[in-house]
C-alpha cells in the first residue's frame, strides 16, 4: 500500500490514476466473488475452475493496471508456487486417502472412517475439498502464466 501511495504521489495525475484507483477498489470484490464461486459450486453454476480463474484474473488485473512488481509484492513467487503445489496435492491427497482407507481411488464414501457421516454427505464434502484444490492450482498457474509470458521470463516491469 505504501508503495502504491508513493507511486501515486510521484506520477502526474491522469488516466493512469483513474484506472489504478478503480482497480484498487475492484480487486477485493473480484477475489471475494472468486471465493464465492468456488465455495458455492454445489448449488449454483461454478466450481474450482471458474472460481480459480476469477481469483487469478484479479491478480492479472492488478498486474495490468500497475506493473508486475506490484503483484509480486501482493503474492510472492514462492507462495504462488506453494499454492500450485498445495492445490494439486490436496486433490491427489484426497484421492490417495480414499485408496489408503480401502476404497477405490477418489471414492469419497470410504472417508467415513475419519469423520462418521453419511456416505452421500462425505461425497459432497469430498467434492468441496477437491474443488478447493482445483481452485488453488488454477489460480496460481494462471498468475504464473501471466507473469512469465507477460515479461518474457524476465520478471521485470511486465506489460
Amino acid at each position: 500500500m505504501k508503495r502504491l501511495q508513493e507511486r501515486a504521489n510521484t506520477r502526474p495525475a491522469g488516466q493512469g490514476l483513474i484506472i489504478e484507483t478503480s482497480v484498487r477498489i475492484m480487486v477485493p470484490f473480484i477475489q471475494l466473488y472468486g471465493l464465492y464461486v468456488i465455495v458455492h459450486g454445489h448449488y449454483s453454476p461454478g466450481g474450482g475452475f471458474q472460481g480459480g480463474v476469477a481469483l487469478g484474473a484479479s491478480f492479472i488485473l492488478l498486474g495490468l493496471a500497475f506493473d508486475l512488481p506490484t503483484t509480486l509484492e501482493r503474492m510472492s513467487e514462492r507462495s504462488n508456487a506453494l499454492l500450485a503445489n498445495a492445490g494439486v496435492l490436496i486433490f491427489t491427497g484426497v484421492g490417495a486417502m480414499c485408496a489408503i482407507l480401502g476404497g477405490y481411488l477418489l471414492d469419497y464414501s470410504v472417508l467415513t472412517a475419519i469423520i462418521p457421516m453419511a456416505a452421500a454427505e462425505w461425497r459432497s464434502l469430498g467434492i468441496f475439498l477437491v474443488e478447493v484444490g482445483v481452485g488453488l492450482a488454477v489460480m496460481s498457474i494462471m498468475v504464473s502464466l501471466f507473469w512469465d509470458i507477460g515479461s518474457a521470463g524476465q520478471m521485470d516491469e511486465g506489460l
Partner: peptide, 20 residues
C-alpha cells in the same frame, strides 16, 4: 452426492479421475 449442481457432481465425483 448431495450436490444439486449435476455438473459439479459429475466433475468432482463420477469423473474425478479425469479432473485429477
Amino acid at each position: 452426492t448431495h450436490a444439486p449442481n449435476l455438473v459439479t457432481a459429475v466433475l468432482g465425483d463420477y469423473r474425478s479421475y479425469d479432473t485429477m
